[in-house]
């Protein structure tokens, strides 16, 4: 038993737990005017998914659209930086009007991105 709770084993266990702990992905949300139907969301999601900083492993291939609140959620890859200008252009080319961009903090709080 003493062997099991030796210092090296404890360190190994802690290290394993640290590696397994979930990391919070970069998530953003955009207020998009006019996006009121499922078909509206199809075009916007199609354009946003083509951006190279999108993380396709989250949401629905990196994008989630809430037509009830006219919000578009996006996930950004850990090793990439969000390009606000490119994101807004993609939404506009999808036929709708992006208004405000927020970053979603780990706490769930929304912080506006200028």
């Amino acid at each position: 038993m003493k062997r099991l709770i030796s210092l090296p084993n404890i360190l190994l266990l802690l290290g394993s737990l640290a590696l397994a702990a979930p990391t919070f992905a970069q998530q953003y949300v955009v207020d998009v005017h006019g996006i009121v139907c499922e078909f509206c969301s199809y075009g916007v999601a199609k354009k946003v998914r083509k951006l190279d900083f999108i993380d396709p492993s989250q949401f629905d291939k990196g994008v989630k659209v809430d037509i009830e609140k006219q919000m578009v959620y996006i996930a950004v890859s850990d090793n990439a930086a969000l390009d606000k200008s490119a994101l807004f252009k993609a939404i506009e080319s999808g036929g709708y009007k992006p208004v405000t961009l927020w970053r979603i903090a780990e706490s769930g709080e929304k912080v506006e991105v200028q």
Binding site: G34, I35, V36
Partner: peptide
């Protein structure tokens, strides 16, 4: 000519 405003297009 499109107009988008809130939950209306």
């Amino acid at each position: 000519r499109y107009h988008n405003n809130g939950a209306f297009t």
